[in-house]
Simulated scan of single mutants.
Amino acid sequence: MQDVIEHFDDDVEGSFLGMCVRAPENSLRRGISAYDLTMFNTPQLERLVVELGELPEDEKTPVVKRVIEAADQTIRRAGYMLFIGD
């Protein structure tokens, strides 16, 4: 059983999911499913943080920044981050 540390949703514009859908095919964020569960472990989260950090500033919406913060927190706890699709 896992403890849920934090829960939050995408913004009303769906900026996080939109950014994932537009990501290059070989990126980790492209693998985040809009319709299913996607779980990342620590090494995957480290890669995700790098990918998100490399986004142009205008794509770093508040929800993207929140995902980065949550991923950093999850990495420190050696946990898993779960993305829940529709």
Rank of each mutant, 00 (worst) to 15 (best):
D72C: 10
R47G: 06
F40C: 14
L52E: 08
Q73E: 10
M81G: 09
L48C: 06
E54Y: 02
V12I: 11
F83W: 08
E57V: 15
E57N: 10
Q44K: 09
E13M: 07
L28I: 05
D9Y: 15
E54Q: 13
I84W: 14
A23K: 01
A70F: 00
T42Q: 11
S33C: 01
P43L: 05
D11Y: 11
E13F: 12
V63K: 08
I32V: 07
E57R: 12
F83M: 03
G14N: 15
N26D: 14
D36Q: 06
D3T: 06
P62E: 13
G31V: 00
F83L: 00
I32E: 00
V67G: 11
V63N: 07
D11L: 10
T42P: 04
A78L: 03
K65A: 09
E59F: 07
K65C: 12
G31A: 00
L28Q: 00
G79N: 14
E69W: 06
G79W: 13
F8H: 08
R22Y: 01
K65M: 14
A34N: 10
N26P: 02
T74W: 13
A70P: 01
T42I: 13
D9R: 15
C20A: 08
E25R: 09
R47N: 08
L45E: 02
D36Y: 05
V49I: 10
M1I: 08
E59Y: 11
M81S: 12
D58L: 11
F8C: 09
E69H: 05
D36L: 04
D86Y: 09
R30K: 15
E51L: 07
R77D: 03
Q2F: 11
F16M: 05
G85Q: 07
P56T: 03
Q2H: 12
D72Q: 09
F8D: 03
L37M: 10
M39W: 13
T61I: 04
V49E: 02
V67T: 15
L48E: 05
E57F: 08
H7P: 00
Y35R: 03
D11V: 13
K60L: 11
N41D: 15
A71Y: 14
P56D: 05
R47Q: 06
K60T: 06
V49R: 11
N41V: 08
D86E: 15
M39V: 15
P56M: 05
P56W: 01
T74Y: 10
H7R: 09
L17W: 04
P24R: 02
D9N: 15
R77E: 05
P62W: 12
L37V: 10
R29K: 01
D3R: 13
V21H: 14
M39F: 13
T74R: 08
D10Y: 01
D9G: 12
Y35C: 04
L45I: 05
N26H: 10
Q44W: 08
G31E: 01
Q73A: 12
V67E: 07
T74K: 09
F83P: 02
I75D: 07
R30I: 00
M19C: 12
C20F: 01
